[in-house]
Design a protein around this nucleic acid. Structure first.
Lengths: 112, 112
DNA sequence: CAAGAATATATCCGAAACGGAATATATGAA
DNA sequence: TTCATATATTCCGTTTCGGATATATTCTTG
């Protein structure tokens, strides 16, 4: 089950789906919960979730009538590793430690 | 000119474009040079380059009849920072240094 | 200026994406 | 069984995408 970067990047290319990912990073959620913040209809959100699912970014369980969604780290990691393999382009220093700390403190401040 | 993640992720969702990015990471290249490894026609490659350009991933200069392409780091960095903001999901340790080194050695081994 | 090389633009095509509306399925409760 | 809630599926129209072909533009050189 190796992440398919085509699907992963494609899934992340939509702002609705990135917001869903951001929401799921804080814990499992049902389709209703995920749909709530959006103006979109529920079936549309369902479709977005399915896109995330096919990219491996989301997995689901069954609990009563609900199908809680959970975020899967592997594809996100694969996407980060691909983009990260070009770090050298924006890092002019060879002090990898300080570079990492700088980058890390920045990502921490970033929302969506 | 802040990177538009929609466009960036969307641009990276295509394998041809990721190969172009990989090629450009090793230095500037003309359209002809970029097109060479592909079976595609030149206009198709031109379109892919334009997609990368609109995402801010590629910039171009003018030199004689050629328009050399250069890779721009900012959007790649933005994409990495977005995905990287979910690192916590696959890192169970708080030893950030060793985590970074592990991740880094892995990305180094990865091709395309 | 004419010819050629590098690149862009225009147009066409089939396939896929995105969103809505309506409908279907499934599970739990009364 | 009947009702209600949660979610999925289907169909539709519109837009975008990826590739092809054909044509135009731009610069260089003779």
């Amino acid at each position: 089950m190796k992440p398919n970067l085509d699907r992963v990047f494609s899934a992340l290319a939509d702002p609705t789906r990135r917001r869903i990912v951001a929401r799921l990073a804080r814990g499992e959620a049902t389709v209703m919960e995920l749909a709530a913040p959006f103006r979109m209809t529920q079936p549309s959100v369902s479709k977005h979730i399915k896109v995330l699912e096919r990219a491996g970014l989301v997995s689901r369980s069954r609990h009563a009538q609900t199908r809680p969604c959970r975020l899967e780290p592997a594809p996100l990691r694969a996407a980060m590793e691909w983009t990260g393999s070009y770090r050298m382009l924006w890092e002019d220093s060879f002090d990898r430690l300080s570079d990492f700390l700088d980058a890390n403190s920045q990502t921490k401040k970033k929302g969506q």
